[in-house]
């Protein structure tokens, strides 16, 4: 019975979380903390921290975490399945419509109009991430005193490697983590001495 409840709770989270990322957080909170009391508020805050520190979407991460806490690995699987099932069905229907009708003029019109918008949204996501990397704050609360030299240097070098040498993005991400951490530790050592 608990499996069915877990499945249904995460099915709703998957179905109503439009906009992705943090848009899902209040929805998850109302289901998990207030609705079913599966997690305490402090546990929920921990969950958001973990979700932020690890790869993967917040909704999937919380489904796995909550499922694990309540019923171990089978619980994690049930919650995760419930969470992605709505997207799976809806995305499949939309993709099918897209393949079938994309040569229609009206559909062409819609798609051509959407292209600049999609580029703009990706760019916007890039800017907020860059601000977070360089100032560790959001765009509206940037202070020049928070500027991080190591991250700025890393960003420039990485972008150069990607543009000039078409470097592998996965290597760039992990490489920047490794090199950046070494620089930080070296900087700390120098300051102490």
């Amino acid at each position: 019975m608990i499996y069915l409840e877990m499945f249904w709770a995460f099915f709703q989270i998957g179905l109503f979380s439009f906009g992705g990322g943090y848009a899902a957080v209040p929805l998850i909170q109302s289901q998990i903390v207030e609705g079913h009391h599966w997690l305490e508020m402090s546990q929920f805050a921990d969950l958001i921290t973990i979700a932020e520190m690890t790869p993967g979407p917040i909704a999937v991460n919380s489904a796995t975490f909550v499922g694990q806490q309540i019923a171990g690995m089978p619980g994690a699987l049930v919650c995760t399945f419930g969470c992605i099932l709505p997207s799976f069905i809806i995305v499949l229907i939309l993709s099918w419509l897209y393949m079938k009708y994309r040569s229609l003029r009206t559909m062409q019109g819609v798609l051509t109009g959407l292209r600049p918008a999609v580029v703009a949204m990706i760019a916007s996501a890039g800017v907020s991430l860059l601000v977070l990397a360089l100032f560790n704050s959001s765009l509206f609360s940037v202070q020049s005193s928070d500027f991080r030299v190591i991250e700025a240097g890393l960003f420039v070098v990485c972008l150069f490697l990607l543009r000039r040498f078409k470097a592998n993005p996965i290597l760039i991400i992990f490489g920047s983590g490794l090199v950046g951490t070494l620089f930080y530790l070296a900087a700390q050592k120098l300051l102490i001495i």
Binding site: L129, G177, V179
Partner: peptide, 26 residues
């Protein structure tokens, strides 16, 4: 904690690389 913070710089570079290509095509 440090690795996760600095990695954001690399992630931002990956997004910017793609955005440059896409914006050019528009």
């Amino acid at each position: 904690a440090i690795a996760l913070q600095v990695m954001r710089a690399g992630v931002a570079a990956v997004i910017f690389d793609v955005v440059i290509d896409l914006a050019k095509s528009i």
